[in-house]
Amino acid sequence: MGAIFQVLVGGPTHNWPHALRTGKLDGRWAAADRGALRLLQLGYHPELVVGDFDSMTLAEQESVFEVIPKIVEKPDQMQTDLQLLLTTLDENYDIERIDVYGATGGRLDQLFSNVWILAEEKFTALRTKVRLIDRDNVVTFFNPGTHTITKIPEMKYLGFMPLTPVTELNLLDEKYPLAAWSGNPVSWSSNEFNGSINHFSFETGIVAVIQSRDSDENDA
Rank of each mutant, 00 (worst) to 15 (best):
A125F: 04
I98C: 08
T22H: 13
T87P: 00
G102T: 04
L37E: 01
L85W: 03
W116G: 00
K70G: 09
P12L: 11
N92Q: 15
R127L: 05
P75F: 07
T124L: 05
G51D: 11
L89R: 09
G23P: 02
S55H: 07
R135V: 06
V9K: 02
A19S: 15
F53Y: 12
L8C: 10
R28F: 04
L82E: 13
D109M: 12
G43I: 08
A119E: 14
D136R: 00
N114D: 13
N92H: 14
T124G: 03
T128R: 10
Q61C: 15
L89V: 04
H14C: 11
T80G: 13
K24P: 00
G35Q: 01
F53G: 02
L25Q: 03
L40N: 00
G35I: 01
T57I: 12
D52K: 10
R107H: 06
I98D: 05
L58A: 14
Q77G: 09
S55F: 07
T13G: 09
M56W: 09
W16A: 07
D94S: 13
P17R: 10
F65I: 05
L86S: 05
A19M: 08
D54C: 05
A30N: 07
W16V: 01
S63K: 14
Q110S: 09
T57N: 12
V67Y: 14
R127A: 01
D99M: 08
D52T: 08
P69N: 11
L118V: 09
L86T: 08
E91V: 02
K24R: 15
R21H: 09
E62V: 15
D109H: 06
D33C: 06
L126H: 02
E66P: 12
P69H: 14
I68E: 02
E66T: 15
K122L: 10
L86W: 06
D33G: 02
P75T: 13
L25C: 10
G10N: 15
L108M: 13
D90W: 08
E66M: 15
N92P: 05
D81K: 11
F65T: 05
A32H: 03
L20P: 08
L39P: 04
R135T: 06
M56T: 12
D54K: 02
R28D: 11
Y44H: 07
F112Q: 10
A32P: 03
D26I: 08
F123G: 01
R34C: 00
E60I: 10
G11T: 08
A32M: 03
Q41K: 14
R131G: 00
I71A: 12
V72L: 15
A32S: 13
V67M: 11
G105R: 03
L86A: 08
R135N: 11
T13K: 15
H45A: 10
F53P: 00
A36F: 00
L40F: 01
N137F: 00
D54G: 05
G105Y: 03
R107M: 08
S113N: 12
L40D: 00
L42M: 14
T124D: 14
P46Q: 00
S63I: 12
L20H: 10
K122Y: 07
E66I: 15
L126P: 03
T128M: 07
W116R: 05
D26H: 11
L42E: 07
Q77L: 11
T124E: 10
A125Q: 13
